[in-house]
Amino acid sequence: MPTPDFVVELRKHVGRAELWMPGVTAVIRRDDEVLLVRRSDNGAWAPVTGIVDPGEEPAVCAAREAREEAGVEIQVDRLASTSVMRDVVHANGDRAAYLDLAFACTWLSGDARPCDDECTEVGWFRHDRIPSMKQVLRERIDAALSDEVAARFSRSDGRRGARDRD
């Protein structure tokens, strides 16, 4: 996956130390299907994801990533979930923690296809035929496909997917 220029600049100052990074997941629906990309770094299927640029609105980032990775135009409908991925160590040794904002999105136009080197394949999958993937990604998809109005979030006490009603 290409590293954003601002991260390359930060790494000049902090080396491989853990960075706190804002990220997005775009769960893109078309009728009863979800768009997934096969990641080039690990070969796994996943929704479209990306890192938010400094000053960029997260929903704008989700739409940009959908264009850049899969060549589709989308409408970002709502925030579906928030979660944190801790203790990520990339292949080059860089460490990060990611705050992810997952959005429920609707496909508007474009023939889905790999548009950059971040994915090798794209496909539309019915919800009941989604390929196996990391549980955290599946939870983001489930949250986006739900009829819930409030966003789900993962809690530091280990309860996943709970909405705060305290």
Score class of each variant (00 low, 15 high):
residue 1 M to N: 04
residue 2 P to H: 05
residue 2 P to E: 07
residue 2 P to I: 07
residue 7 V to C: 09
residue 10 L to S: 03
residue 12 K to V: 06
residue 13 H to P: 08
residue 19 L to T: 03
residue 19 L to G: 06
residue 19 L to K: 10
residue 20 W to M: 13
residue 22 P to V: 15
residue 24 V to M: 08
residue 24 V to D: 06
residue 24 V to H: 04
residue 25 T to N: 13
residue 26 A to I: 14
residue 26 A to D: 13
residue 29 R to L: 15
residue 30 R to I: 14
residue 31 D to H: 13
residue 34 V to G: 10
residue 34 V to I: 15
residue 35 L to E: 03
residue 35 L to F: 09
residue 37 V to K: 14
residue 37 V to I: 15
residue 37 V to P: 04
residue 38 R to G: 09
residue 38 R to K: 15
residue 39 R to Q: 15
residue 39 R to A: 13
residue 40 S to G: 11
residue 40 S to C: 13
residue 44 A to F: 12
residue 44 A to T: 14
residue 46 A to S: 14
residue 46 A to Q: 11
residue 47 P to V: 08
residue 49 T to H: 13
residue 49 T to C: 15
residue 50 G to K: 04
residue 54 P to D: 08
residue 55 G to L: 09
residue 57 E to P: 04
residue 58 P to V: 14
residue 58 P to S: 14
residue 59 A to K: 09
residue 59 A to T: 05
residue 60 V to L: 13
residue 61 C to N: 06
residue 61 C to H: 05
residue 63 A to H: 05
residue 66 A to D: 02
residue 67 R to P: 06
residue 69 E to P: 01
residue 72 V to S: 01
residue 72 V to I: 08
residue 73 E to H: 05
residue 73 E to V: 06
residue 75 Q to G: 11
residue 76 V to R: 01
residue 78 R to A: 08
residue 78 R to Y: 02
residue 78 R to N: 01
residue 79 L to P: 00
residue 79 L to R: 01
residue 81 S to R: 02
residue 82 T to E: 12
residue 82 T to C: 11
residue 84 V to M: 03
residue 85 M to Y: 03
residue 85 M to S: 08
residue 86 R to F: 06
residue 87 D to Y: 06
residue 88 V to W: 11
residue 89 V to D: 02
residue 89 V to L: 02
residue 90 H to C: 10
residue 90 H to Q: 12
residue 90 H to T: 12
residue 91 A to V: 13
residue 92 N to W: 03
residue 93 G to Q: 07
residue 94 D to T: 12
residue 94 D to K: 04
residue 95 R to K: 15
residue 98 Y to H: 14
residue 100 D to R: 11
residue 100 D to G: 10
residue 101 L to R: 03
residue 102 A to Q: 01
residue 104 A to D: 08
residue 105 C to R: 01
residue 107 W to S: 03
residue 107 W to E: 06
residue 109 S to D: 14
residue 112 A to W: 00
residue 113 R to Q: 11
residue 114 P to L: 07
residue 116 D to Y: 00
residue 117 D to H: 07
residue 117 D to N: 04
residue 118 E to V: 10
residue 119 C to K: 02
residue 119 C to W: 03
residue 125 F to E: 01
residue 125 F to N: 04
residue 128 D to H: 12
residue 128 D to L: 05
residue 128 D to S: 08
residue 129 R to M: 04
residue 130 I to L: 15
residue 131 P to R: 11
residue 131 P to V: 07
residue 132 S to N: 06
residue 133 M to A: 07
residue 134 K to E: 13
residue 135 Q to T: 07
residue 135 Q to Y: 11
residue 137 L to P: 02
residue 138 R to H: 05
residue 139 E to A: 01
residue 139 E to D: 05
residue 140 R to I: 00
residue 140 R to E: 01
residue 140 R to K: 09
residue 141 I to A: 00
residue 142 D to S: 02
residue 144 A to Q: 00
residue 144 A to F: 00
residue 145 L to C: 05
residue 146 S to I: 02
residue 146 S to F: 00
residue 148 E to D: 02
residue 149 V to T: 10
residue 150 A to N: 04
residue 151 A to V: 00
residue 151 A to Y: 01
residue 153 F to Y: 08
residue 153 F to I: 10
residue 153 F to R: 07
residue 154 S to T: 09
residue 154 S to V: 05
residue 159 R to P: 09
residue 159 R to S: 15
residue 160 R to V: 12
residue 161 G to T: 06
residue 163 R to E: 06
residue 165 R to V: 12
